[in-house]
């Protein structure tokens, strides 16, 4: 469950805005950082601390794709499939990842290491095709590069 530290950080966040509700996005980000994803229980706890209803918090959490409402693997692999990346073969990148990881988009490998997602423009069109793994960008992707990245991540 949400740590006391997170709860008190959320309280501090609330004080930072003219309207305390504005702290909801950073509060959710904080909760996700702590838990990896936003379970119904965590959402309820955030609601409690925020003084909002679970529905209001769930609504906001579900609006933003960067909030995970299902458990994700240790590495969240997000492949851009927007225009620039698609023109440079994002489709093949996704196919390659699916084959290598043995999962479909939206799924997590049985060992809990990788979750594969397609996302919209990551704002790095100049280095397309691009994917993001947790907080790191990997650019100018090729199949070989992906193999290296996966091997590297597995080693960690």
């Amino acid at each position: 469950m949400l740590s006391d530290k997170a709860k008190s950080e959320i309280q501090q966040l609330k004080a930072r805005y003219p309207h305390p509700n504005s702290a909801l996005l950073p509060a959710l980000a904080l909760a996700q950082k702590e838990h990896g994803w936003l379970s119904p229980e965590v959402l309820e706890e955030v609601a409690e601390v925020m003084g909002l209803s679970p529905a209001q918090v769930g609504s906001v959490a579900s609006f933003y794709t960067m909030f995970n409402r299902r458990p994700v693997g240790k590495y969240l692999v997000q492949v851009c499939t927007n225009v620039a990346c698609s023109l440079l073969g994002a489709e093949h990148i996704v196919e390659h990842l699916k084959r290598k990881l043995g999962i479909n988009v939206g799924e997590t490998t049985p060992d809990g290491l990788f979750t594969l997602l397609e996302v919209e423009c990551l704002g790095s069109c100049g280095t397309a095709p691009v994917m993001q793994v947790n907080d790191t960008y990997y650019e100018n992707l090729t199949a070989e590069k992906i193999d290296q990245i996966l091997a590297e991540l597995r080693r960690r």
């Binding site: 909002l52 209803s53 529905a55 209001q56 769930g58 609504s59 579900s62 609006f63």
Partner: peptide, 10 residues
């Protein structure tokens, strides 16, 4: 004051 409904997804 029972905000039990809201819009989900987008």
């Amino acid at each position: 004051g029972d905000p039990e409904l809201d819009a989900f997804e987008r």
